[in-house]
């Protein structure tokens, strides 16, 4: 079996385009899913039973469905239910946002809940309002606990974006698999794909490790 690595260089522009879409999917999903997660957590912790239940259902639904199923569902079912046609990229994005928002919602909720009742009481006893206690005491402390988890979610998300290739979103995985089926260079393309994902993912993982050590909670 002869290997022809020039194929990778030949398709460099397509691959680069795929990389950019992968990054775009990751970044945009996080930009949506962080406020999304905060809103879900606030709803969940609010005194309104309705808001809290809606949030709970949303989180438990999307956290427990395989992402690939959500992707297919968004692609085939959502247009019928909503009666609108959505491009593949946006469809993939929506599926990712639903999934990651649910995860982030749980992350923020756990972060806020991890702050002891006594800390809240200490703020209230000074005469602070509930909102001031949130802003000055709970959120700054919760952030330190949430940040490492968000960073891990980020790295998973970066890899999980490859799942939207199944609905022909032209991100890295899809592009690489397309080239493979056109050129029959299976070994080369799968290897190239692995190397690119790894080169992009490894520094992120290292960054996450650093964030984990930096924000380790000291009680």
């Amino acid at each position: 079996m002869t290997l022809d690595w020039s194929i990778v260089w030949e398709y460099r522009e397509d691959l680069l385009h795929g990389v950019l879409l992968t990054i775009a999917l990751t970044v945009i999903t996080m930009i949506v899913a962080i406020p999304g997660g905060i809103i879900l957590a606030m709803m969940r912790l609010s005194r309104s039973r309705i808001l809290s239940t809606i949030s709970l259902c949303f989180v438990e639904l999307f956290r427990n469905l395989p992402l690939i199923l959500v992707v297919y569902w968004a692609f085939y079912v959502m247009p019928i239910v909503l009666g609108i046609q959505i491009a593949a990229f946006e469809t993939g994005l929506i599926a990712l946002c639903l999934n990651v928002s649910a995860y982030n919602g749980e992350t923020f909720r756990a972060g806020i809940n991890s702050i002891r009742e006594g800390q809240v009481n200490a703020g209230l006893a000074l005469g602070m309002s509930r909102w001031q206690v949130m802003r000055e005491i709970v959120i700054p402390q919760a952030t330190r606990r949430v940040l490492p988890v968000l960073a891990s979610t980020w790295v998973s998300l970066f890899k999980d974006t490859s799942l939207v290739s199944v609905i022909a979103v032209g991100e890295l995985a899809h592009v690489a698999l397309q080239i493979r089926s056109q050129t029959f260079r299976v070994m080369e393309m799968l290897t190239a794909m692995a190397v690119i994902y790894w080169l992009l993912g490894y520094p992120q993982a290292k960054l996450v490790d650093w964030i984990h050590s930096k924000f380790k909670v000291a009680e």
Binding site: G118, I137, E219
Partner: peptide
């Protein structure tokens, strides 16, 4: 009213950050 009362807790409850 709370502003006019000081409270000290068994576990201090200082703000760690």
């Amino acid at each position: 009213v709370r502003q006019r009362m000081g409270m000290v807790f068994q576990n201090f409850e200082l703000f760690p950050h």
